[in-house]
């Protein structure tokens, strides 16, 4: 989803944080589907990705909660278990790579939060009128012992960012519930049931848009609302904005620059009605 990436690039440029693409990376690989097939292969590919930046002394910033979880887990698991580290390095030797120690891995949402004061000083457009349902998702928070970021049962960081932009963040019942995306692989109906519950709770809370910090959650909310409507006869049509898209709007970028028309549910009309973007 290039629009998510593009919004993040714009936001971090404004915050004077230098980002470069992590070239030659493979999939992280994802922390749900891949270790289910083979844990060792998962650790090995994750370690290869970490080894790409280890020598450059860069940190890894990711827009995906799944990537962050995988890379932090790999860091953690191999750091605790020298035998596993040796096994993985024996595997990596076949492609002339090696991982020595730890690499700092951060979610883009964390980086934003750590720079919230700078961010506040750059806001040019208040997002007043947006009533946001923040969906934290699972891997942004848990397992908290390894992710070591927000409180997994009472998270606040994303809400604080959303409020700093002038938008409201509304509480709703199943706030901490999973979006259901992984169940699409095993039982689509159950995945829709889970999503239906979340959307209903959001609607009851009186929201007008959803904010996520994970591309996989984005897909679930933006593209599967239709499937939920079909199954349940509902008419959910909440625009979904990835956190950096929301921030970019507050920094003055418009829907065109952000490519918001590429979303499944187009946010343009709502943003115009709220005067967040102009009416052209």
């Amino acid at each position: 989803m290039p629009f998510i990436e593009s919004s993040a690039k714009k936001v971090f440029e404004k915050l004077d944080i230098k980002m470069t693409n992590m070239e030659n990376a493979s999939c992280c690989p994802d922390p749900t589907g891949f270790p289910a097939v083979d844990q060792t292969a998962w650790l090995t590919l994750g370690a290869r990705n970490l080894s790409l930046v280890e020598n450059k002394k860069d940190d890894i910033i990711s827009l995906c909660s799944g990537c962050v979880e995988t890379l932090k887990m790999v860091n953690h698991t191999l750091g605790e278990d020298p035998a596993k580290m040796e096994e993985v390095n024996n595997n990596l030797a076949k492609i002339d790579k090696k991982l020595n120690g730890k690499v700092v891995v951060k979610h883009a949402g964390q980086l934003l939060y750590e720079n919230l004061d700078v961010l506040k000083s750059k806001i040019v457009k208040s997002l007043k009128g947006l009533k946001v349902a923040v969906h934290y998702g699972c891997h942004f928070l848990s397992p908290s012992e390894i992710i070591q970021w927000d409180n997994p049962f009472e998270p606040t960081t994303v809400d604080e960012i959303v409020r700093a932009l002038g938008a409201e963040s509304l509480d709703y019942d199943s706030r901490l519930q999973c979006c259901g995306n992984p169940l699409l692989k095993t039982d689509k109906d159950l995945a829709y049931d889970l999503l239906y519950k979340k959307l209903s709770d959001m609607k009851n809370a009186g929201i007008n848009c959803i904010t996520v910090v994970c591309p996989s959650c984005f897909l679930q909310f933006d593209y599967q609302q239709r499937a939920v409507n079909k199954k349940y006869g509902t008419e959910f049509k909440f625009p979904v904005l990835y956190l950096t898209e929301l921030v970019a709007l507050a920094l003055g970028f418009n829907d065109k620059e952000l490519g918001l028309k590429f979303h499944g549910i187009k946010p343009k009309k709502m943003l115009q009605e709220l005067n967040i973007i102009s009416n052209e």
Binding site: T32, A36, C138, S142, C178, G180, L183
Partner: peptide, 12 residues
């Protein structure tokens, strides 16, 4: 076992 979402709530 394949129905687990890996949402980690139980682990927490």
């Amino acid at each position: 076992v394949w129905y687990c979402l890996t949402c980690q709530k139980c682990v927490e």
